[in-house]
Design a protein around this nucleic acid. Structure first.
Lengths: 137, 137
DNA sequence: TCTAATTTTAGACTATGTCTAAGAGGTGAC
DNA sequence: GTCACCTCTTAGACATAGTCTAAAATTAGA
């Protein structure tokens, strides 16, 4: 897996240093929508020497290179999403957890007809409560 | 106008102190989507002694009482919206400005059919560039 | 007017993110 | 292999946004 990651980074013109690969190994996989400090905490488990600045720099680099998206959906938390395809989001108001909603579960009409706005991107932001799923988590 | 505001606050069970009325006079009117510090700067023009804590407390109180909504749409900025009716938002990616989109300019289908989620609220978040409007601002 | 409750204030504190300067590491030329 | 150069990483300082606290000021009621 780590080898794949090095190749993946190089394909985007990113030198695959040990730190960057360790960060990629976690953040490009997860659907947890972690904040930068959560990524830092996680990566330190396998790479205790890694510095906070490196994690922040690397995450911003991944965003610039299209490997990640960053989202600002809840208070004081910039969060990273390894799903770079277009999709919507659901926010659980009790837990703060963010869930991806596949693009075609919802449909938005008339976006292209917005007068006076050049639309580059859009998503639906849904808030509420996730229902407990039998068995799962 | 200030008189109306005092009555408006009392109707929501908020004691209309001079500070609170001064804050209400600005923030319940504007469509600028100001941050808390922008409200503070503005209110200080007419009420130089007002403290930062009071502005923050008052804004949070107004949100709790349903006079304002707060939005977290762009990085590091919690922003207040005097439009408490359901509506969508457009964010200009160059300027960071936020524009309200009336509820019925867009239509979202299948929200109520989301499996496993109890929906309390939703909106469409559109990003792009506002086209210059002849004459206006 | 006196008392009690509420509100405001200044500043300390916390959390999140950025910047900087110095050092470490890798790579190519020789 | 060694040197020089360039990039990356590091620790900590800094910046910004928001919350908390304790004391002072204000308000309302008896």
């Amino acid at each position: 897996m780590t080898v794949d990651k090095a190749a993946l980074l190089e394909a985007r013109g990113i030198k695959p240093s040990a730190q960057r690969v360790a960060i990629a190994d976690y953040v490009l996989h997860t659907d947890e929508h972690p904040s930068a400090d959560e990524v830092w905490a996680r990566v330190k488990r396998v790479f205790p020497m890694v510095s906070r600045a490196t994690v922040y720099n690397t995450l911003n680099l991944f965003v610039a290179k299209g490997l990640l998206r960053h989202l600002v959906l809840t208070e004081g938390r910039l969060v990273f999403d390894s799903n770079v395809d277009q999709h919507h989001h659901f926010i659980d108001e009790e837990t703060g957890k963010i869930y991806d909603l596949p693009w075609d579960t919802l449909e938005v009409s008339r976006v292209e007809q917005l007068k006076g706005f050049e639309v580059r991107d859009y998503q639906v932001l849904v808030r509420g409560r996730k229902r407990p799923t039998r068995g799962a988590r």
